[in-house]
Nucleic acid binder design. Structure first.
Length: 486
RNA sequence: GCCCCUAUCGUCUAGUGGACCAGGACAGCGGCCUUUCAAGCCGCAAACACGGAUUCGAAUUCCGUUGGGGGCACCA
């Protein structure tokens, strides 16, 4: 039990579940599953002012979409609950009181205004910013005075004034920080809520967390967490700070770089297993040749030792390739179901209504290997669901042809196709190819005109199969219509 | 300004002192296939940031420089 791996993913409901967050969640989950450990979900909602409604649900939704299940946390419970920090206030107060008692923390009565002024001044003088410890050595009489006067205060951790704190990071090795360069940070806010620094330490301890996997941006505050742990007499968890996910310009990934929420990728038609595979490759690798991993493969092979140390640029090209790969991997039935599910959720404007599954299943093989995302399907298949093909009449005339030649070609096609009994791709091809030769036109020219006439598209699924699915009647009607337009 | 992390093809990366005139993947380019577009196959181009040091030998170790990133809130 003592060496049971217990890890947590602890999102803060202040923004969307963006790809960086989810990569952290994924690595944490993979580590838990690989080690046969417990994966805990904890909501860190200690900032009342920045809380955004509905975001917790988005995180749960995103986790589920990517196939990550949690053993303890919201909706599933567990022995270490509640799993929402705003419901665990008593524990933080108790820890703060203990620190106060032991002289490891103190009440600070400085106003926000004074703090802001102080910071501004420090910046102006190009000096190191940080709390000036004005309230650290107040006499008890002074404290009584301030308390009567202000009525509220924060609790600050009393940093050791000297010495160094060493962090042992599973990814980066030993990292040292000089205590004197860290200020007396707030652990309990005046609204009675803890800051992240206190809450994370208290909860990781109470939830018996063995390893903390989090983004690299937390590395500089790790000595604070270690020091709080030490002051409370607790054994700290092991730490692993994951490399950041960067935008193409190598800055921190943000909204201005496009989609950042993984849910937006679902909306854009990406498959969850492609997203998981992609995210896993952002900062982790197995060897020098493997880049296709199922979730099961990842669980089997994941290890912190193989996590990289430098930031990784979010590479949409690779995601697209992976998505195309996994899409092609689907059976036609599976892809049909995915498409139907996708359209049920986000009906594209090209498609008038959710199509019949059996009919869609006949269409799917024609577009299967042409899709990078589910979103690509609609424009490619929309004509199947419309009464007539939509195009500009002059598009019928192919390069190197004139209107008269096109008319001849199309009426020839009309005649040939009329004679086809079993209207399938092979039979259609069997009459159309010789026709091109008889007409003395290139197959590309004949087929191009027919493609426009029947689909309205310059780029379409393969012609013969398309005609087969369209059926003889609709195909002939389309050619007649084209003839009329010439 | 101070602190911390980091540095291999455009991108994701393999590489833990000799097996590396550096391997894979995506993207790019060329070709094949081909009714369009894809897919597929074959091929090409493309990197150890720089400078010192250690060593018989360095992409790999150390130091420095430079670049990039992160942190320095009553935000997480």
């Amino acid at each position: 039990m003592a060496d049971q791996v217990r890890v947590r993913y602890a999102p803060s409901p202040t923004g969307e579940p963006h790809v960086g967050n989810m990569r952290t969640a994924l690595f944490t989950w993979l580590f838990a599953r690989n080690m046969g450990g417990i994966f805990i979900l904890r909501i860190e909602d200690t900032d009342q002012s920045r809380k955004v409604e509905g975001v917790i649900e988005q995180f749960l939704d995103a986790l589920r979409w990517l196939g990550m299940d949690w053993d303890e946390g919201p909706e599933v419970g567990g022995d270490h609950g509640p799993y929402i920090q705003s419901q665990r206030l008593a524990g933080y107060h108790q820890a703060a009181d203990e620190l106060l008692e032991a002289g490891e923390a103190y009440r600070c009565y400085c106003t926000i205004e004074r703090l802001a002024e102080m910071r501004q001044e420090q910046n102006r003088l190009n000096r190191q910013t940080g709390y000036d410890r004005r309230c650290r050595h107040l006499s008890s009489q002074e404290r009584r005075g301030r308390e009567a006067e202000r009525g509220e205060w924060v609790v600050r951790f009393a940093m050791p004034l000297e010495g160094t704190t060493r962090v042992t990071d599973l990814i980066r090795g030993e990292v040292s920080f000089e205590n004197r360069l860290i200020d007396d940070f707030v652990i309990l806010k005046s609204d009675g809520f803890p800051t992240y620094h206190l809450a994370v330490v208290v909860d990781d301890h109470k939830m018996e967390i063995s390893h903390v996997l989090r983004a690299e941006e937390w590395l500089p505050s790790t000595p604070r967490h270690l020091l709080i742990c030490r002051a409370l007499g607790w054994e700290p968890p092991k730490f692993a700070h994951l490399p950041m996910i960067l935008a193409p310009d190598r800055s921190k990934l943000s909204k201005r770089h496009g989609a950042t929420s993984v849910l937006e990728y679902r909306q854009m038609g990406y498959l969850p297993n492609a997203m998981v595979n992609f995210l896993a490759l952002m900062g982790w690798s197995l060897d020098d040749k493997t880049d296709l991993f199922s979730t099961g493969d990842l669980v089997r092979h994941f290890s912190i030792e193989r996590v990289g140390r430098s930031g990784a640029v979010f590479n949409l090209d690779k995601l697209n390739w992976l998505n195309g790969h996994y899409t092609r991997q689907l059976t036609p039935e599976e892809l049909t179901d995915r498409l139907l599910d996708y359209w049920r959720r986000y009906l594209p404007e090209e498609v008038p209504a959710l199509p019949d599954g059996a009919y869609l299943l006949r269409i799917v093989p024609l577009i299967h290997e042409r899709l990078k995302t589910l979103k690509d399907a609609a424009p490619l298949v929309a004509f199947f669901f419309k009464q007539e093909a939509q195009y500009e009449s002059q598009e019928l005339v192919q390069k190197g042809m004139d209107a008269e030649g096109t008319r001849l070609a199309l009426s020839g096609a009309l005649e040939s196709l009329s004679g086809v009994k079993a209207f399938d791709a092979d039979a259609i091809e069997a009459v159309l190819r010789p026709l091109a030769e008889d007409l003395g036109v290139k197959v590309g020219q004949l087929f191009g005109s027919l493609r426009i006439a029947t689909t309205g598209l310059r780029v379409s699924p393969p012609l013969f199969e398309t005609l087969e699915v369209l059926g003889k009647e609709r195909s002939l009607a389309a050619v007649r219509d084209a003839l009329a337009r010439l």
